[in-house]
Simulated assay, not measured.
Amino acid sequence: MLYTIPDYYHEFSCIAGECEDTCCAGWQIVADEAALKKYKKVTGSFRKRLRRSINWKEGTFKQDKNKRCVFLNDENLCDMYTALGEKSLCRTCKMYPRHVEEFEDVREMTLSVSCPEVARILLGKKEPVRFLTYESNKEEEYDDFDPFLYSKLVDARKVMIDILQDRSKRLDLRVGLVLAIAHDLQVRIKREDIFSIDDVFEKYQTEKAVQFVEAKLSEDENYAFIKKMFRNQYLMERLRDDWEPHLLEAESLLYGDIGCSDSEEQCTKYKEQYTKNKQEFHTWLNTHMPDYEIWYEQLLVYFISTYFCGAVYDGEAYVKVQMAVVSVLLIHELLMAQWLKNEKMLEMEDVVDTVYRYSRELEHSDPNLNLMEKLMRRDLLSWFKKDE
């Protein structure tokens, strides 16, 4: 078994009670069967509390009226951990924020940016992320697994990450090249022409390809697309009660009256104001937070490294890349809204807050991830139409 981790993996250490948004609140914690069997055997003074604090039928820890785990005390520390030790924790609590993607003979491990401390580590990282590998003797087999396609997806992911980390090019150009690679890769997967995938890698590492993508970028109308992507978020399952009010406020700040039921002239004014705000925001970022493109690069690498190779199971390579790009676009929009709300100021904690809150809503709901991919199939970027 080959294990892969990002180079910042071992930098993480849970800050427990110091965390501004503990993972032990707001989510339903599901305990694994082994942990539940262990809890039934607990003796001593903590036994009674343990018994009444678990929904044994559902296999979950109960929550109080504020949706906090009943084991979470007022100092945001776990009473079970204090009473029974680290080994008493269920798999969910032991693993988070570690995230695992499994393939035949490969286990890719990362840290989820839904954790504020992980978001802080990744966004504070100036150097390009590198991926480390190590081996164990464990072997596993998976049904319906195409090792040849997987190997090509791994190659494609490396090419895309290398392009994203080439800081000699503008970030929008790097993103365009990666989308173009994913598009042409998808065409070959659809046609079952996997053997020609290497031609795609060569094609988009030429000056001619750069010129092609630059032309497409200049033609693209981004406003309507990103506005539609923003509103797609309302279609998703809500994991936190405060997320939809946050989106509604951000949408109003960004695009004017929600729904734009006013006249065409009024809608045009909203668009002009959005364009003006966006230009001013970019100028402000370049002056006060010049590393913002590095944040976006790190997030793009995070999303692509985490999800792209999952296309070996469903063949959906392009939608996974567009999901990564759209996620970073939405984070950018939410940051601009926060900047407007703060009277055109932004702190690093605002950035961390936006990233981890967005990640929690998307990445910790399988229905949301599935819906996001469905929306990416439906709402392609305007200069990538479905191939005949």
Rank of each mutant, 00 (worst) to 15 (best):
L346E: 07
R170N: 13
E139Y: 13
F201C: 06
R188E: 04
D387H: 08
F212K: 14
G259S: 10
K126Y: 12
I331L: 05
C267A: 12
V200E: 11
W243I: 10
D166L: 11
R378W: 13
S252G: 14
V118H: 04
M289E: 05
K228P: 06
M109K: 15
N55S: 15
Y292G: 03
M376A: 03
D64H: 03
V129P: 01
F195P: 02
T92E: 02
K41C: 12
V326N: 00
H282C: 12
I189T: 00
W243A: 08
V106I: 14
P290L: 05
C115G: 02
I194W: 02
L254S: 02
C23I: 04
K386R: 14
N368Y: 05
I331T: 03
A119N: 01
W56E: 06
M236W: 04
D64C: 09
L89Q: 08
R378N: 12
Y3M: 08
T133K: 05
V352S: 03
I161C: 06
D155V: 14
R377F: 10
W284H: 02
P97S: 05
V113N: 01
M372A: 11
C93P: 05
M80Y: 02
V326T: 02
S261F: 13
N370L: 15
E293A: 02
Y3A: 08
V326G: 06
E272V: 11
T22C: 06
L132P: 10
Y318Q: 03
F103I: 12
E363Y: 07
W383Q: 08
H10R: 04
L153K: 01
D166E: 15
M348L: 11
L329R: 13
Y270K: 04
F230D: 00
W295A: 01
W295K: 02
Y134Q: 13
L72A: 09
L239K: 01
M372E: 08
R378T: 15
N286C: 09
K374M: 04
Y150N: 13
L36A: 10
S218M: 14
K37V: 02
V187D: 12
V118F: 06
H10S: 14
Y292A: 08
